[in-house]
Amino acid sequence: MNPFRYERAQSGAAAIAAAQHDGDARFVAGGTNILDLMKIHVEAPSLLVDINRLPLSKIELRGDSVHIGALARLNDVAAHPVVRQAFPMVAIALEQSASPQLRNMASMGGNLLQRTRCAYFRDVAAPCNKRAPGSGCGAIGGENRMEAILGTSERCIATHASDVAVPLVALDAVVNVAGPQGSRSIVLSDFYRLPGATPHLETVLVHGELITGLSVPVLPFGARSTYLKVRDRAQYEFALGSAAVALDIEGGTIRQARLALGGVGTVPWRPRAAEHDLTGAPATRTAFEGAAEAALTGARGYGMNDFKIALAKRTLVRALEMVAA
């Protein structure tokens, strides 16, 4: 790691002010991503602002939303009765993330901001437009088995790494942010930016802004949901493909569907057309397969990750079957 100054923030305002005054400052909560990236020199902040003492760990039902503090740890959110009852898919996605130790460390806010596992992004000797804009994309034409097939651009095909962001994007979760210009709330699907020509810009956050928490609107049929993650080994691995599914079914007919795909997109992928196709459709395999086709519209393989197109469809169909059963 490069030398840096450390500051423990005593208040949210102090944290934001400290970061605002240093363009190379970063917040640290669990540390599982930022310190890892500092060790491999992808990140080299001049100042680390430790936000762990801020009172942002609460998980509670307020009105028709579940509020999750930015500093709530993944394991605590997964174990919380309100979360387990209201959105099983969120709890499952968290339980399938990383390892038990890392889930005790990692914060919800940090998880939403975790950087891609793309090998070219993580290797400072390799070209990467996300890490070093203009240097090229090593993954295109390279080792790209784990890379994205949706939302890619000629500049970047890096997969978004978060599991929990997948069900959260399906649930229209709202990110609450505080910053130098005040606070604002952003729907998660508007929070992430597609790589396009600027893959180094991953979210709409500006420097100094701090995620304070999430508000997840309670979905009436959220209890009927699941998260299915497919990977090479059984645990402790990023997804080859994943699907978050919530269904409102009455008398064999789907009234509403919420879907999202992980492990395949440059951002957590919300296939709204497939949701639309399922609305009013019978809960049958044929309908599910049709939705999966729609969900993968525009998907593009880059060689080693071609299989992800079929895998993502099958993962979504399986998740739909699991929820419908």
Partner: peptide, 18 residues
Amino acid sequence: RYDARSGRIMNANLSEYL
């Protein structure tokens, strides 16, 4: 896994070397 162009090992860690 080697990148055929650079000859560099692209999964030199215990997260991607399974």
